[in-house]
Nucleic acid binder design. Structure first.
Length: 421
RNA sequence: GGGGAGAUUCCCGAGUGGUCAAAGGGGGCAGACUGUAAAUCUGUUGGCUAAGCCUUCGAAGGUUCAAAUCCUUCUCUCCCCA
């Protein structure tokens, strides 16, 4: 094991806010300090991209890997066919197998960026590999017999669902996840499963299974679910989740999300979503008032770099600065500065004739419908260039362009560029 | 298998023949205040060629001048009994 840490990784994790529940803290700490441990986290490919919730788990893994341990990123191509009922009041829509396979492929591509997979330092597996070919009768005899329905019903997840309804397929989810853990123990010596707090029940069930079947102690470790101090769902934008795929959530939008985080959350996010050293984070967050914005910009820059790479992050930062200073101080920024701001191209001829503001805002995607655009304009939330526009009959023409670009603004912070071609 | 309850707009949830594009709350958006923060207050929140018209109250039919509301069948969910 390379680079035996001077201090326990466990303390690092704790300090950075990754530790919530642990099955045996002393035992796990000792194990992590003395052995190279193989551990895993599962990711169910229920969408086309990972989102920031997954990012926290990837950071969780990355810290352990940096301490010399071996992560297994488990893509749940098999479990997703069942659907995890955890934390849901209604059953998940069952996805077609082909969709799951396609999503799994996309997940693998994204996960690969966050861990070091060279020379077997990390593994990427898909549980469809062993779950899909399972034989029902055999499985029941070998694995099912270790599960007590009485005990399962006592789990919070199931209790909750017993009120609204729970189908048998979902009831089996926990058993399959437990089986995953057992398989990974057998095939790769995996002895630690991590996840978000919501996964506690599932993880513990797997740990128990390993103890019963193999007589070995395995470990469970969960991290707190990230919440925002304002009660908004973490990583949710107006558009939906904050995805890691740049085609779904652009780097500029991604950067903006972090710059706009509530003051009270900056520190916890720096701890969990960046690798900045603890003292540096404390310094950054020691300030109050608008000075805390520096910490937010740092946070946004770090995470965006991590997820989209440095050039994209710099572009997003530059564009943000240009957009937000342009509105106060006039043309502070050069022509290329805004290039990170989302845009569409519109032919010059169209603008010679002129386009109604309402239509232009709809085309820009700043507004979903014309009614939406009308409301925005009449409520005084729309700007073209540096002019606030309040008349829905306003026609935008070429003369509104500056350096071949018309900058639209909806509300105080949503910008969009119309590029004249 | 028998009996009961239910499915309403993004979510929760009122609404039992016209006064319903549908109360109220949440969320969203916008304005004021600010620091691209929070809290607070205000406005707004189906679509459109905006007077007016069109689509929406699980699905399909039917009754009626008129249906979210009444009838029939269907789908799904929950509860109780077996």
């Amino acid at each position: 094991m390379r680079g035996v840490p001077r201090r326990s990784v466990f303390d690092t994790l704790k300090q950075r806010g990754f530790v919530s529940q642990c099955s045996n803290e002393e035992g796990l700490r000792k194990l992590l300090d003395t052995e190279k441990v193989t551990f895993y986290i599962g990711f169910d490919p229920t969408a086309e991209s990972l989102h920031v919730g997954h990012l926290q788990q990837l950071m969780f893994m990355a810290h352990l890997q940096r301490a010399g341990h071996r992560p297994i990123a488990l893509v749940g191509g098999g479990t997703t066919r069942i659907g995890d009922p955890t934390g849901r009041t209604e059953s998940r829509k069952i996805l077609p197998v082909e969709t799951i396979a396609a999503n799994a492929e996309l997940f693998r591509g994204q996960i690969a960026r966050f861990l070091d997979f060279t020379e077997g330092r990390a593994l990427m597996l898909d549980n469809a590999e062993w779950l899909a070919p399972l034989n029902y009768i055999e499985f029941l005899r070998d694995i099912g017999k270790h599960f007590s329905v009485n005990r399962m019903l006592s789990f919070e997840t199931y209790k909750m669902r017993l009120e609204t309804g729970l189908s048998f397929i979902e009831f089996n989810y926990q058993i399959l996840q437990s089986y995953d853990y057992l398989v990974l123990y057998r095939t790769h010596g995996c002895r630690l499963q991590m996840g978000g707090d919501d996964q506690w029940g599932n993880i513990v069930a797997g740990m128990d299974l390993i103890r019963r079947v193999e007589g070995v102690e395995a470990f469970a470790l969960t991290s707190p679910l990230v919440t925002r101090s304002d009660g908004k769902k973490m990583g949710k934008t107006e558009q939906g989740a904050l995805f890691l795929d740049p085609a779904m959530t652009g780097p500029y939008e991604f950067y903006q999300y972090w710059v706009n985080v509530p003051d009270a959350d900056v520190e916890q996010f720096l701890f969990r979503f960046t690798f900045l050293p603890v003292p540096e984070i404390r310094d950054l967050c020691a300030v109050k008032d608008q000075r805390i914005n520096d910490a937010k910009r740092r946070l946004a820059m770090e995470i965006t770099t991590l997820v989209h790479g440095e050039p994209a992050a710099r572009g997003a930062a530059e564009a943000s600065r240009a957009a937000f200073s342009a509105s106060d101080e006039g043309t502070a920024a050069g022509p290329g500065a805004l290039s990170g701001v989302p845009s569409i191209e519109v032919p010059r001829e169209e603008l010679v004739k002129g386009i109604g503001v309402v239509d232009l805002f709809v085309r820009s995607t700043l507004c979903a419908t014309k009614s939406d655009a009308r409301r925005l304009v009449s409520q005084g939330g729309a700007s073209v260039g540096r002019k606030n526009v309040t008349d829905i009959e306003t026609v935008v023409t070429e003369s509104d362009a500056e350096n071949g670009v018309i900058l639209l603004r909806a509300g105080k912070k949503r910008y969009f560029r119309i590029i004249v071609t």
